[in-house]
Design a binder for these strands. Sequence first.
DNA 1: CGCCCTTTTGAAGAAAATCAAGGGCAGTGG
DNA 2: CCACTGCCCTTGATTTTCTTCAAAAGGGCG
Lengths: 233, 233
Amino acid sequence: MIPKDLLVEFMRRARSPSQEREVIESLPWAMTNVMRHKNILSAGDRPTALFLILEGWAGRYSLRRNGSRRITGFMLPGDLCGIHAVTGAKMDHSVIALTNCRIAKVPVATIEAAVRSAPSLGRALWHSKLMDEAILRRWLLNSDDAEIAIAHFICELYARMSAIGEVISDTFRMSITQADIGDALGLTAVHTNRIVGKLRKAGLVTISKGEVTIEDPRQLYQHCNFDPSYLHL
Amino acid sequence: MIPKDLLVEFMRRARSPSQEREVIESLPWAMTNVMRHKNILSAGDRPTALFLILEGWAGRYSLRRNGSRRITGFMLPGDLCGIHAVTGAKMDHSVIALTNCRIAKVPVATIEAAVRSAPSLGRALWHSKLMDEAILRRWLLNSDDAEIAIAHFICELYARMSAIGEVISDTFRMSITQADIGDALGLTAVHTNRIVGKLRKAGLVTISKGEVTIEDPRQLYQHCNFDPSYLHL
DNA sequence: CGCCCTTTTGAAGAAAATCAAGGGCAGTGG
DNA sequence: CCACTGCCCTTGATTTTCTTCAAAAGGGCG
């Protein structure tokens, strides 16, 4: 059974009427665990199921010819992947568990039927995809300034973690490395580290032992021109 | 009436059965013209219609605090925008006509009904969005190397223009400036110009008077590791 | 012709990558 | 209990890439 609290969040995003929640909750969600650093989907796959992250963080990535990696998206609890399944297309990238993950799967054939009886599920899928895209656009927009890119990225995570109740007194767990952040924003681990240090020294963000603390969210928001409305949370 | 050839392309992408084409073709498409440099949609709008580009090129963009612009996507004939309408969300970016454009609009309320009787229209919408996202991921992937980014971008346009029959003897019209390309790939106009010159001197691509000619597509593909399959054309 | 937009080239400066190495911390095993 | 190991964070020095500033040349069009 899919956890109630995350389902509620998932449905809230889709603005589901309660009778539709029942349809969605009763879908044959199959639970699986994926260990850290294991692929959930691989480039070239044709996913046949939709994946809902329940616990842990996952990331989309592609590899370059020289072996370096670009992360093109993070999936947090409540986020979906495998929507490629709706068109039957091959994955053009891979999805990896960045921490140990618990994941719920539903066959896409089941989804298509469910969308007819619960239109809000269809909206949830669109919502998810439009948010992914909006995030990619922000990353591009901020990519001309490493300090803004990193600060904005931390704001993004802060907002997304807040939405799922994972922020307590302006602090949240971030079990990814600075190298991962660099891979996401197109920076080296070394440079990422310098900028993170700069933000810490400026009293804007503290990252320590996998915990992120934002001293004054409003100040940080202003520093990197962050406006959470693009996330539609 | 929506032009037959573009409709065919649009439907081909959606793998539409012919009886569905009729439904889609008979939608109340309203034709409009938009002059170059005029916004088609603006950030903050809640689009109420879906837009199908019939002629010309359009671009998604956002402005930075310092006034500089980032282009986050190009729309060519046969491409859609305004899919935000399906969720009722506000636009987080603007869409501008980069050349004079002819555009067909359909109210989103009409679309939703049509999707029920012509499921392939729904698939076409998903297809369009997944391609947009795949392109953004490539731009991120290539953003660590200006020469590869530009070469790959030209390959992208070549593949997309080919798909709509706009490439003749490895040449196509590109009525955007090098500054536009720079705004899309996160480079200055000056640097973009230098790299374009480098590609020309290497005998890979010639850009002259708004015409792009690719001497040997296979060689250019290999140079920037381009594989058109991510576009699903 | 003269104007504007775009492309092109040069030179100097800033941002980020690369190369290199030390330090902290947790887990492992003797 | 402590040494060892691996992973991650941190800092310094050097090099590359890209930006910025500046200016000139080409082309289309009133």
